[in-house]
């Protein structure tokens, strides 16, 4: 049991980070904080992928006979794309928040909802 917990310690930490992100996302009314939560959530997934590819004692993948044990490079490459996507999402989110601030003069979801209901 203990081995299972300790052996997957990286995954437990990732799960913790993920939950922090999701919790922030759901519990905060402030739109900026929501986006922060979203970014943390996405980051956790990136960490997850990276640790998937890690092989204990593995090296960088070099095509050479000397190195037989190497980490899988593919997840890391994939995450480059995912990071770009994440950045784009966050940027778009912030742009929207700026527009919302202009339109509603607030970034608090509860206040915005109240204003929406009045329309």
């Amino acid at each position: 049991m203990m081995d299972f917990v300790l052996g997957h310690i990286n995954y437990w930490l990732i799960v913790a980070v993920m939950m922090v992100g999701l919790y922030t996302l759901m519990s905060r009314s402030n739109l900026i904080k929501k986006l922060a939560g979203l970014a943390i959530f996405q980051t956790a997934v990136i960490l997850f992928y990276v640790s998937l590819g890690k092989v204990t004692g593995g090296t960088v993948p070099i095509m050479d006979e000397k190195y037989t044990l190497y980490s899988n490079p593919l997840p890391q490459v994939l995450m480059l794309t995912a990071i770009v996507v994440g950045v784009a999402t966050t940027a778009l989110g912030f742009a929207l928040v700026i527009r919302i601030k202009e339109a509603y003069d607030s970034v608090e979801e509860s206040e915005i909802n109240k204003m929406d209901e009045q329309d």
Partner: peptide, 18 residues
């Protein structure tokens, strides 16, 4: 056209990204 579009887009962004 309406400012509600902004909040609609924002909540779609959050949910869509999740």
């Amino acid at each position: 056209k309406h400012r509600k579009a902004l909040t609609a887009a924002f909540s779609y962004l959050i949910l869509g990204t999740i």
